[in-house]
Design a protein around this nucleic acid. Structure first.
Lengths: 198, 198
DNA sequence: GTCTATAATTCGATAGAC
DNA sequence: GTCTATCGAATTATAGAC
């Protein structure tokens, strides 16, 4: 990090600032300052703010999928085992990238067509072994998509809402992290309990 | 709505645009266009973009609390009854204001001090009869704040993530609405199931 | 490659006619 | 009160020296 190339410094700074503040609220000056470099270098290496943003967007989209995609189609794992691994991996990733959820939600809403590019969320989730296992566990009591939404909700939402939750719950960063650690164990149990609801 | 005053037209347009795009991505010209009026009138009636935004922010914060605060301290209702009313009211509100969650999450993150103004989320939730009932139902198995987070998560997150969920689940607006209707009934059942987890 | 200085554009705000 | 025209500040992008 200390002596990475100039191009790399800019990319890292752009990652930090864009992910924290989103496209619209970010000024290229913020990125230059974060990188400890001159404003002109951003355009020299990346041509435009949009172009630099698109690179960061792709990185963030991939990070958002990583940690799930590998697990979903492992046919040797039970549903419960998959839930455990997914919750663990995802919360680990979110602890390192706490700004990611709000970034993804905001930028996809502003620019939905960027979701379709490259990666097929549809294929990855809806045609996975995991989804089939969910469907089987539910019988035809319920649309399995509800459970997908619930897993994503209870895993991701606390990070997206952390500024509010910290104030409401009077939590320091330490307290918040401790709660998220507890959730790694609890989320699979909660989801299993939901699956049994009639 | 058709022949409301100019000031009211601006306020309505500002509500729509600010809530959909957030402060940073909104241009005052967008609001003027949405209102079908001239740009100069915004400053004539509201002095500045910031000032107009603060008004919309307050409206949206209050709307975000309405539908909960009344129920939380009704001592005649059981926990289950409260959960039912909260899920029902909140999803009704979110169906009418689908942009509200992302707006609140984004603007509080950008400006956390605006949460403290006026309303005390802390008091309203943590010292409510509802919270006491949660604590009792859980014994000391679990920090009740987890359940608060879970209620908020499974209720609010699907609206914040709706652009993504629609693409991933191949849902039209009709399909999405139908799922949210189902959730009104399911959320209390899911939360009750979570409370029993050891 | 890197920097300073500046051009070009966008955007919030205002002056002034009606 | 409402509009057109425009100013001035902020911001992206670039020219040109080193």
């Amino acid at each position: 990090m200390a002596d990475s190339s100039t191009e790399e410094k800019i990319r890292e700074a752009a990652h930090v600032v864009f992910t924290r503040k989103g496209f619209a609220a970010t000024r290229t000056r913020d990125i230059a300052e974060e990188a400890g470099l001159n404003l002109a270098l951003l355009n020299y290496y990346f041509r435009s703010k949009e172009n630099l943003f698109d690179i960061i967007m792709k990185e963030n989209m991939q990070r958002f999928l990583k940690g799930i995609s590998g697990v979903l189609n492992d046919e040797s794992m039970t549903l419960k085992a998959k839930l455990t691994v997914i919750a663990e991996n995802y919360i680990n990733m979110l602890e390192k990238n706490p700004d990611l959820p709000l970034f993804i939600l905001t930028e996809i809403k502003a620019n939905p067509e960027k979701l379709a590019v490259d990666m097929n969320f549809k294929e990855i989730i809806l045609r996975s072994n995991f989804y089939a296992q969910l469907r089987e566990a539910l019988g035809n009591k319920l649309n399995p998509f509800h459970i997908i939404m619930n897993i994503l909700s209870i895993t991701i939402f606390p990070f997206a809402a952390s500024p509010i939750l910290k104030i409401v719950g009077e939590l320091q960063q330490n307290d918040f992290n401790a709660l998220m650690e507890e959730r790694k164990k609890m989320i699979p149990l909660w989801i299993e309990a939901m699956l049994k609801v009639e």
